[in-house]
């Protein structure tokens, strides 16, 4: 019999406390213990990216982390990003560009895209392709996904350019 561990973790801004077996994967903890089924599980070997979440603000594969490891940490799932409105526009652009078909990969795609744009506010076309290669889609052929992320990046750059004079005068 393996020892159980009590963990306290902040998930999407709310503190949760649970008792877990050490082998409980974070992806299963989110889906089955917390009912957050937006985090999808594709391969359980870190390849497909469907289970990508933010751990302490950094994108990570939840199938390659044990729930017991995130004791004291902050986890953000697609539900948290979606409910806060943080990825609302990305979701609209995915819809506009037909960047999904079956939708299984989409939560991971959105988290990867959000993380990419956080780190690279004005990515090149190649950087978008490289960054989005962290998640696999077996339906769309990626064209719509790349277009959606490209448009999101372009709008961000335009928004930052417009905002620049305001920052300059306020300094």
């Amino acid at each position: 019999m393996t020892e159980l561990h009590k963990i306290r973790v902040e998930v999407n801004g709310a503190l949760v406390e649970r008792t877990v077996e050490p082998r409980r994967l974070l992806s299963d903890f989110l889906r089955e213990d917390l009912g957050l089924t937006g985090t999808h599980v594709g391969c359980e070997q870190g390849i497909c990216g469907a289970c990508t979440i933010l751990l302490n603000g950094r994108a990570a594969r939840s199938c390659l982390i044990f729930a017991v490891q995130v004791d004291g940490a902050k986890v953000m799932t697609i539900e948290g990003l979606s409910n806060s409105g943080a990825v609302r526009h990305l979701q609209d652009l995915f819809s506009k560009h037909r960047a999904l078909q079956c939708g299984y990969c989409t939560p991971g795609m959105i988290v990867v895209a959000y993380d990419l744009l956080q780190h690279l506010p004005s990515p090149t076309a190649q950087e978008i392709r490289d960054g989005m290669s962290a998640a696999l889609c077996r339906c769309t052929g990626y064209v719509g996904i790349i277009e959606a992320v490209t448009e999101a990046a372009r709008e961000r750059v335009a928004a930052v350019d417009c905002a620049t004079p305001v920052h300059m005068t306020s300094d």
Partner: peptide, 26 residues
């Protein structure tokens, strides 16, 4: 020893290896 787990955990998920104790150094 469990460090980043990006090679170890896939191998564990596939039950290619198993251990009595995992020492998480994170």
């Amino acid at each position: 020893v469990l460090a980043g787990g990006q090679s170890l955990v896939p191998a564990m998920n596939f039950r290619l290896n198993r251990f009595a104790l995992l020492i998480d150094i994170n």
